[in-house]
């Protein structure tokens, strides 16, 4: 299988073509620099993204912005959103305080990005 992957490491946005099957990469072509090779390989095997959203505060109008402390597999993003939506927190909250540990068995935590 050949996949065309747009590299997002720098603004040049090279369209890199990766050949392989599942988690095995056979070749990487059309990259503008070395950083692109690593990115394209990872993106081919298992694309991951930082997830950011907000959580509600119990009994208040406030929303607290949160993020995943590490990238989450793209395929699990919507499932994680479901779980975060069900969560409410109580104040005060500290910067990078863990809100949900190991969200949806990803091994990644959801943490606050604001002190309040």
């Amino acid at each position: 299988m050949i996949k065309n992957i747009i590299c997002t490491v720098c603004p040049r946005g090279c369209s890199i073509s990766v050949k392989g099957e599942n988690s095995i990469v056979e070749s990487v072509e059309n990259y503008g620099c070395k950083r692109g090779i690593e990115y394209a390989k990872a993106e081919f095997v298992c694309p991951v993204r930082i997830l950011t959203t907000v959580v509600k505060v119990d009994g208040k109008d406030e929303l607290i912005p949160v993020r995943s402390n590490k990238p989450i597999p793209k395929s699990k993003i919507l499932e994680c959103m479901e779980e975060i939506r069900k969560t409410t927190i109580t104040l005060p909250v500290k910067m990078h305080q863990v809100i949900i540990e190991n969200v949806c068995d990803t091994g990644v935590s959801i943490v606050a990005t604001k002190e309040f």
Binding site: I50, T52, T53, V54, P65, R67, M95, T113, K114, E115
Partner: peptide, 21 residues
């Protein structure tokens, strides 16, 4: 609340609230 702030200045990808904090 999305990430994408501070790559040049802090060499990290921060969210808006993390950046201004």
């Amino acid at each position: 609340i999305h990430p994408g702030f501070g790559l040049t200045r802090f060499k990290e990808e921060l969210t808006g609230p993390e950046y201004y904090s």
